[in-house]
Amino acid sequence: MTDTQGWHEIFEVAVPAVSPLDPDLILAHAPPERQHARLRLVPIMATITAVAIIAAVLTVVLPRPGSKSAPSADNARQDYAALVLRPGDRVDAWGSIYSPDGRSARFCDPDEGVATAPRESLRCYFSVPITGVDLHRLADRQVRGREIRGWAHVDGFWTGTGVRVRRQTAALPAAERPDPQLPTACTPPPAGWPQQSQVGPITYGPLEAYARAHPGTVIVPSVYFPGPDQKVVFALVAGDAEPARRILERAYHGSVCVVASRYTRAQADAAAAAFFGHISKLITGGQGSDVSRAGQLQVTVQAVLVTPELAHRAERQPVGLVHLDPWLSP
């Protein structure tokens, strides 16, 4: 592991998850015409009374509750075209409902709205129009002036421009943050993964030393905790994994999993750029270099829905590298 990656992991864990800012709060402070005077913003924490528990942090990809398409898939070929939402498709999803005026409503991607800090407006951004929704039957219903927002599970169909509700249940999201699971490519030794209390503390030292001696070999380092007192260092390596495995298994007394990468770092970077390089009102989050359940590089793209264009973009990438995770899917 390189020094940069080691420090990144420490800071990634240490820095708290936070909620995105409210764009309208920023826009409310913008002067009507461009001016040179420095503006003093009211510290926004003064208006925030709750601690955000789950944040839309792009560096952490979590499965959406109820997602039909778990982010950590196995790099199998995903049928992107089958994910494209077409008029008449049935939609079965939960999210928050937002109405600006008590009449019209939008269905909001839950990635944006789970337990975020209170804002000046109840409005959401990653959303689609919704009709036929009962604004009185929402879980955790909030009313501010004419605005209404609350949670619902919706069974309906896609009209081409929005969701038409057939059935609606007031339901709160059951957001869970699962522990990352050891990739399926990692099989334990016959006696099981060693206990740290028996083999001694497992550090990144040997992996760092290996990476230094073999530059460019270790594509992704990671660490997993398959059980109490168990820690497994994971290394996704370029080329033949056998030399790395031989050296690292000795150094780690078996508490290591070395997997040969199917993809290069450059391929993952190019795929990530194809999705995250531009402002999109459809893409809500993702991860440029996730590790899939199979233990391979994976670019996970969370989106409101999959359009034919988005599916086409995914099809142009190496097979199995891109995982589309739409909120609304057929």
Partner: peptide, 22 residues
């Protein structure tokens, strides 16, 4: 422009706040 800016803030501000936390 407003919609693009809103989408940008929603997508990237959390990451930038974490960086600013450091």
């Amino acid at each position: 422009d407003l919609e693009e800016f809103r989408a940008f803030v929603m997508a990237r501000s959390a990451s930038m706040i974490r960086s600013a936390w450091l």
